[in-house]
Write a protein that binds this DNA or RNA. Structure first.
Lengths: 336, 336
DNA sequence: ATTAGCACTCTAAGCTCGAGAGTGCTAATC
DNA sequence: GATTAGCACTCTCGAGCTTAGAGTGCTAAT
């Protein structure tokens, strides 16, 4: 890749293909007012681009389709684009209209992002580095059954049923809850386990359940993510053959999706784009994933992603992911 | 429909078609050892069945495909079948292995049901008739922000952020929570609103949020249901053409599915089967829905359903829905 | 009432063929 | 040397045709 004209042509091919989902002929590029050359010249450039692996032809005399390498070039060329001011304002406005509630925010973000990218949006809930006890409540439901409501730092709430061997009245439960609240406030699970006060058997049991619940939370890689826009993805011409999506569908349903989708390294604050065969998992060899990180470092971090075919409107998707990450981070700082 | 032999033949056609998804020729029925007649005889019976609208032929000389009326007959003929004892034991066993937690139960039930029916299972969470206050907790997050944790009867937990105009310390919040807990225990929303104690502005604000949260809960038709087995459905040969499922996909995603899916009348404890054009909503004219009710009457009721093409393994699906409703009802009685 | 036998119908898959789209190459032009 | 017009060549896609075979409906025999 040398001449600037080659770059222009490649970018035109990629944009047009993303738009039209049809192999792009040299003529259609020649018509572009940006460059005043004939289709024959374009053809020369195109065969060079093909030799260098930026574009692919289905057969001898077919139009051009970008390769992964072609998409990669295109993506690099627009990494620094940001969302238009009017869209930024619209987004902010929408977020300030909904209730102050993490779930509502994430759900809204997923919907907006899917809409922008015309593909599936995946937003994971913030992962605390290691959850910390904030408050607990014990409520008697029946003689031997109680509900434990556990509040962790960062406005995370967990519930768990507990069954005792013998009847435990609400009054005892309240006393125990108060005792635990005083003793465990702000502690991590390990610190709670170390505490060796003298506990009654009932208390020990509750402490056990508490510990297991917190451990669950720590171990859980991600909760069910917020998904939206699967139907946009299905609408793409890539999926007229339905078998194409079977495997993917199962991934989504089984929620195994997430582990595979999120890039291992999420060091940088920048948006990460993984294109086609750059994905380690073979299932995604014809998909691209655009991922951003949001949240508060060292406290709780989640991801904002878009999954779609490699032919994805990166020019809309990347800045949207970027801006939504920023909004969510800002909103979340109010919770910690 | 008169002769018992006609009935046998119709049932054979339906079962075979459900199994094979291919029009059933007279020969294949004649081979059945159950009735020792030739294919010509079957053909005579078949043309009678066709005249009466139980089966349909794609064209002049094609095999038989059941009509909605045919499926209806088939379903009526097996309404009283129950799950095999071994499967009943297996199901019970599985339910007693998981944690005592409503979410886990519903999720397990959805997975089992989808597996049995080889189609999509939809389980709605129990709807309380009108929610009742059990307990609340107020936790300060930042100076002017608090988290309200609201526990309703039936082990339902709700969270809501509250933002105050001025700083409110944890100590004040605790006092307010105690006051409310004492005053509102066991009450419905309307009853809480009627209470006209003298409240401070902060208390009024919290009471307002409380009321809105409870109203939300009352108005919300259904929460997000538990879905499983969409991929089974996609695997059915009905869906080799992908456009067939687009609309459906969107329904699932937008959660509008539920309102449309659940029969208006759920009086009886029996399982309800709605076949093809019996569905009011046109979208489901080529689908069948099998629905059962579970829960505790007048307290909290949810539904267990299977959605799939009219060619659905009713013989497995109906007893499974039936038995799972029973299991879930039994389990839930422990929560009230 | 049942059945064997056969002619008839309809589908689905394969096949050819021509039109059209788009390229690669060559030779002329700037 | 870069660009371009012109044209032959390649490949795809859909239309139309053909044929094998699956399955029925009918008739005449049992």
């Amino acid at each position: 890749m040398i001449s600037p004209r080659s770059e222009t042509i490649l970018n035109l091919i990629v944009s047009k293909y993303i738009d039209q989902a049809v192999p792009i002929p040299s003529q259609s590029i020649a018509q572009e007012p940006a460059l005043g050359v004939s289709s024959a010249t374009i053809r020369n450039e195109m065969s060079r681009l093909e030799n260098e692996g930026y574009i692919i032809r289905a057969h001898h005399s077919a139009g051009s389709v970008p390769s992964d390498k072609g998409y990669r070039f295109h993506v690099e060329s627009l990494k620094d684009i940001s969302l238009s001011e009017s869209e930024q304002r619209l987004f902010s406005h929408l977020f300030h209209q909904v209730e102050r509630d993490l779930e509502k925010w994430l759900s809204l973000a997923a919907t907006l992002l899917a809409q922008q990218a015309q593909n599936m949006a995946v937003i994971t809930t913030p992962r605390p580095a290691g959850c910390r006890f904030k408050h607990m409540e014990l409520l008697s439901l029946q003689d031997t059954t109680a509900l434990m409501v556990l509040v962790l730092h960062g406005a995370r709430v967990k519930e768990q049923l507990i069954t005792f061997d013998e009847a435990v009245p609400q009054s005892s439960l309240t006393i125990i809850a108060n005792k635990f609240n005083a003793a465990f406030s702000g502690l991590h699970r390990e610190q709670i386990m170390e505490k060796e006060n003298e506990f009654s058997p009932t208390e020990e049991q509750i402490k056990d359940v508490l510990s297991r619940t917190m451990q669950d939370d720590d171990e859980q890689e991600y909760e069910d993510p917020y998904l939206d826009g699967f139907h946009f993805m299905l609408g793409q011409p890539e999926f007229t053959r339905s078998d194409r999506m079977r495997g993917l569908m199962e991934l989504v349903e089984k929620r195994r999706l997430i582990k595979t989708i999120i890039p291992k390294e999420l060091e940088s604050q920048k948006v990460t784009v993984t294109i086609g065969r750059e994905n380690e998992d073979e299932t995604f060899h014809s998909y691209s994933i655009v991922t951003g990180k949001y949240g508060i470092s060292n406290e709780a971090v989640g991801t904002v992603s878009v999954l779609g075919p490699t032919r994805m409107p990166y020019a809309h998707t990347i800045p949207s992911v970027n801006y939504l990450s920023k909004i969510l981070s800002d909103l979340m700082s109010g919770l910690y």
